[in-house]
Design a protein around this nucleic acid. Structure first.
Length: 308
DNA sequence: CAACCATGAGGAT
DNA sequence: TCCTCCTGGTTGT
């Protein structure tokens, strides 16, 4: 369920507390026993996120590739350092219902073993596919759709299949034109193209719905019928939303909220979005009931009046 | 308890 | 278009 912003935050957390350390790698659940044994005791030398994929490189070049899919999450225990200035760090990232959040105050570096287990390291809870551990910090991965060890060439091949990700690209303008080309050359609905990770990486079902609403664009519009300037606006908006999501740690997509409204939306997910998850509720702009339909097996929310 | 659901994606048909 | 995998929270009987 995590979209791109979550994976970038996870990459930051791993860089902050794990890169530069020798890592004890285990698979409490057992389903990653061989991979864990291969990586165990090596130094983590770098972590990158591209789209929804995470690449953790160990000394010697092996890359741990993780994709959280719908259910995956990382839980962090022990020292969980702040990853964004002026903000709390959250001890768990991924599928929201999995959050056994350990919230830590600004600037706080604290040794603790989780909310209900004041020992370190804590016993693994549930089906932990991989545990990465330093002497001070633990990262538990559960429920990933992909978790494998790749050599650098294979890892790069995965990256090469992905479209641009604003948070892993240094040339946003060049990336923008790649997206323009990949959208406007297709007859597939733009609502599907935004979810296609080879077109643009990191967008999921929530950001898809919200980007289209913010652009007031009908999700059914064929890619080739979307004017290039509208694709550019979508891309620039994705740049903004992703950056905000990485900093805030939540998908607050309503640009009409003031600081207080954003604070309330952070506490109440029902206030975060224009249309996502609001089937039958009045559009926040025109009052028309929000429509939900299936598009390529995923729920698509949109306003039939504002988006055309 | 079971059934259903979720911010995902690959592969078979 | 369907099936499968992965985990766990919520809802219903």
């Amino acid at each position: 369920m995590p979209e791109g912003h979550t994976v970038h935050r996870i990459a930051r957390q791993l860089r902050r507390d794990f890169v530069g350390h020798r890592i004890a790698v285990t698979s409490p659940q057992g389903r990653f026993a061989a991979g864990a044994e291969r990586l165990d005791g090596r130094e983590l030398v770098g972590v990158e996120a591209v789209g929804k994929q995470l690449f953790a490189t160990f000394d010697g070049g092996d890359v741990l590739r993780v994709h959280l899919g719908l259910y995956g999450a990382w839980d962090f225990h022990g020292v969980v350092s702040p990853i964004v200035d002026g903000q709390v760090a959250v001890g768990s990232m991924g599928a929201p219902r999995l959050r056994r959040a350990v919230r830590m105050g600004e600037g706080e570096h604290e040794l603790r073993g989780g909310a209900d287990a004041p020992v370190f390291p804590p016993e693994p809870v549930g089906a932990v596919r991989v545990r990465l551990a330093t002497t001070q910090s633990v990262a538990d991965l559960r429920g990933p759709t992909a978790c494998e060890v790749l050599d650098p060439v294979a890892a790069q091949a995965v990256v090469d299949r992905l479209g641009p990700d604003p948070a892993s690209t240094d040339d946003l303008d060049a990336a923008q034109e790649v997206v323009v080309q990949r959208v406007t050359s297709r007859t597939v609905a733009v609502g599907q193209l935004l979810m296609d990770q080879s077109v643009v990486a990191g967008i999921g079902n929530i950001y898809r719905a919200e980007l289209l609403f913010r652009a007031r664009l009908d999700p059914h519009t064929p890619g080739r019928r979307v004017p290039p300037d509208v694709v550019r606006a979508l891309w620039r908006d994705w740049v903004v939303l992703l950056d905000d999501g990485i900093r805030v740690g939540a998908m607050i997509t309503r640009e009409d909220l003031d600081a207080e409204g954003r604070a309330q939306a952070l506490a109440d997910p029902r206030q975060r979005h224009w249309v996502y998850g609001r089937a039958g509720l009045p559009c926040r702009v025109c009052g028309t009931p929000v429509i939900v339909e299936e598009m390529a097996t995923r729920k698509l929310y949109h306003c039939p009046v504002c988006q055309r």
